[in-house]
Design a protein around this nucleic acid. Structure first.
Lengths: 204, 204
DNA sequence: ACGATACGAGACGCATCCGTATCGTAAACC
DNA sequence: GGTTTACGATACGGATGCGTCTCGTATCGT
């Protein structure tokens, strides 16, 4: 007996992959240029992309579905390669990566917009959190675990990795979010890492 | 000669202050309930407030002007009273305050929405930063300065107070922003403060 | 050649919001 | 009592986006 043909043979003119790509790129460009999610319109996207509205609707059922694809595209921008020379060196690279992401308009604008969706569109936010945030946090958690293993991180802290991730990422995230205009200071990441390692209290 | 009457004597029926207040409250309620700035409309606000559209336009020339007043209202929610028993105690209260603000829907929703305006409406963001953020940061900076003065903070760090403010506020801000769902853990603020004070590296 | 589908362009009716204007009523001052 | 302004309600024309549909053309498999 023959298997039902689930992978229906496509007929007619095939879709042009470049068109879909062009639309996603346009969305990312608009967001990077300051367009808010709420101000994004299917009409405007199609117009800016030089594409028919029907073409957009043919591929995405809703604005959210399109944003989901656009979001995934941003995330593809690689994770940093850690030098592995020491825990501190790795940490500096990790913190520096957060800084660079905060300056990258695509990344930062996407993040800010997604944050606004926490209440108005929890599903979209959750997908973003799972796809982008959680992945980054997990990588950092592994780094911290290695630090614990090598004795470069106090072992009594290992029980709440998530808290340590907050602690490590928080300062630079806060700085880029609230002080986007702050001047670039040499050795900023190093100084933050040293604060993370040793705190602000006088040495014992 | 008579001075030009700049403080023109009001004639006719005076404005009802309660009406203006009702409108601002409605805006804050809508935002707290998840309405995005972009989804806020003068029409919807008037409708929800049970107020004529003209009444809204009579008081505010634009949505931004209205948001500005609404923003100021949120900020009025007092600054915390520091116990003053020790630098660490004060720091715990400060960090705990950040946590409570992150849970308060008015505060957190307003902050998230303002963050989205960084690019699309820099003026509004700047006003928010000056009025709300800068005030909070300044209070924390004074606290840290006192810590430096009393020797509870390493004196070699005093040169970049802003960085220390990032360092102190970052972890809890990040936690509330990205992990709004995280369970309430007892002694969370204390643990964060101890991380801030002593870092994650093994003691010297 | 032929049918099927994709594409850009744009028209379509519907809905919503814009900012203004016009009601009738209410509340202040003279 | 007359004037002035506020207020809620509502109507107004204009603008824009929605999601669907119809063109004419292009590109695939058969």
């Amino acid at each position: 007996m023959t298997v039902p043909d689930t992978t229906a043979v496509p007929r007619g003119r095939p879709r042009d992959a470049a068109v879909g790509h062009k639309v996603v790129e346009t969305v990312l460009r608009l967001i990077a240029d300051g367009t808010t999610f709420g101000d994004l319109t299917m009409e405007g996207i199609a117009r800016e992309a030089g594409v028919g509205k029907a073409t957009v609707y043919r591929r995405w059922a809703s604005k959210d579905a399109l944003l989901l694809d656009a979001m995934a595209e941003v995330d593809n921008a690689a994770m940093p390669v850690l030098p592995g020379t020491s825990f501190r060196d790795d940490l500096v690279v990790a913190v520096e990566t957060i800084r660079r992401r905060g300056l990258a308009k695509r990344d930062s604008a996407m993040l800010r917009n997604m944050l606004t969706q926490v209440q108005s569109n929890p599903e979209l936010w959750q997908r973003y959190h799972e796809t982008v945030i959680a992945k980054r946090r997990a990588a950092l958690a592994r780094l911290i675990e290695r630090g614990v293993a090598t004795g470069e991180v106090r072992s009594d802290l290992g029980s709440d990795l998530e808290l340590l991730v907050d602690f490590v990422t928080g300062p630079m995230l806060t700085r880029t979010a609230f002080r986007h205009d702050a001047p670039l200071e040499a050795g900023l990441s190093e100084r933050i890492v040293d604060l993370i390692l040793h705190g602000i209290a006088p040495g014992a």
